[in-house]
Write a protein that binds this DNA or RNA. Structure first.
Lengths: 239, 239
DNA sequence: CTATCTAAGATACTGGCCGTATCTTACGAA
DNA sequence: TTCGTAAGATACGGCCAGTATCTTAGATAG
């Protein structure tokens, strides 16, 4: 449990030891029951040392998660959109698995309470992935001639990431088959439908088949935005 | 703040008063800072009364959320798959908006820690929606002749719900436009692609276009399931 | 090697909240 | 009117957050 070393650690070394202890504490007692005192004892140090670095529990846990989540540097060119997309989702999966579903889910929850954290969290975890999707995977596919810019909408661009993230948040894992389903049953078919669309007449939906009396979208509900939540865009590309 | 009524309330009346107070307390101090003492005071009662009904904070909050979330009874027949799907997602959106993003997200987080809660939560909030999707919306579309059973996969069946849920968890809201994008840009096109597929040759993905050297799915990553999380299926249809 | 400065580590304290135990008292039922 | 049940008040032990204070290790400069 508590391991007070012979030598007094400092700076970087100490910090890493605390983050490791935090991680072990999460594994041992769980996220909700994690306490600063527990972490301090496990790290062989004391509370003030923790509070000198992180303002509270949430910050500590977030720092811990950040330190354990591998970064995605690039997506290798597999030669096809499909291959690249599978690769991207696989990396996303591996990143999130490295931290674990409980931490990720709880973090999303905790982070929702703190706009400040939320932005930092988003910046650290997500932006790179979305960039990779837009600027590497999709641009490459366009360059190859697999797709054209006109086939893409914002919604379609983030579709694979949205579905993979959702899979992980809800089920706690993403199987290889799930990745292939997302790409093969949803993403590529949805792109495929827009293959030869004229410039911007692309909007309306296809009739899947002879639809008898289609009086589309009659009723509207509440507007949805539960007021004062206009940092929605910031959250758009989470994880 | 505290409103101790002249008469001593009991049973149903008292319980509802406490749940109302819980809701007000969430609005007032936020989710994380909600305390049993605070709720008791606001409800004009005392802690033991709370603990006689709910074991802890999480149970109380969950009961509060359940009591405030309207149930979805049915999806009216709008005459088309598109209309029905929009209607279903709109109801889903309204249900979740009635409770609010912070509560939902935090609840998903808290619930992840407690397998028992998780199941109850899923049962109360989700099952009905998935049922409605499968047994009302899609069956009706098949009956109309808009689609055939062979076009459907499990993934496609829950696609709209997955995307809508994700939208809400991440951005905190679901705009009308988002619902239409989900249906028109993703769901219907993906279905459309499978329109005239032979029985089960449906699996492989479409080449979006002339793909040069497509050596598909070469590398595999970690298996994804972060061990011992085989209640994944239970979580599959969350919210 | 010594002086000095910084940060680690130990300890203690206030305050808040949890969860429970105990007692009194209002209300409903018979 | 009586009696049983549950509401409400109070109090308490315990844990933990977060801070203040003091001592001491060790890095660095001269």
């Amino acid at each position: 449990m508590s391991r007070t070393p012979a030598v007094r650690r400092r700076g970087e070394v100490l910090e890493q030891a605390i983050l490791d202890a935090t991680w072990e504490e999460i594994q041992a007692v769980g996220f909700t029951k994690l306490t600063m005192e527990g972490v301090a004892k496990r790290a062989g140090t004391s509370k003030p040392v923790l509070y000198r670095r992180w303002a509270d529990r949430t910050e500590l846990i977030m720092a811990c998660a950040v330190s354990r989540m591998p970064t995605v540097e690039s997506v290798p060119d597999t030669g096809s959109l499909r291959g690249d997309a599978v690769e991207l989702l696989t990396q996303l999966r591996d990143r999130m698995s490295a931290v674990g579903p409980i931490v990720i889910v709880t973090l999303v929850g905790e982070v929702t309470h703190y706009p400040t954290f939320r932005r930092e969290f988003l910046h650290k975890f997500i932006d790179r992935l979305v960039e990779l999707m837009n600027e590497t995977v999709l641009d490459r596919a366009v360059a190859r001639g697999e797709i054209t810019e006109s086939q893409l909408t914002d919604r379609l661009r983030r579709l694979p990431i949205d579905l993979a993230r959702n899979e992980f948040l809800i089920t706690g894992a993403i199987a290889d088959e799930a990745i292939e389903e997302i790409i093969d049953q949803v993403f590529l078919p949805a792109l495929h439908y827009r293959r030869n669309l004229p410039a911007e007449a692309a909007e309306p939906a296809p009739e899947p088949s002879p639809a008898p009396g289609d009086r589309r979208s009659e009723r509207r509900g509440v507007t949805g935005a539960t007021a004062g939540d206009r940092e929605a865009d910031a959250g758009r590309d989470l994880v």
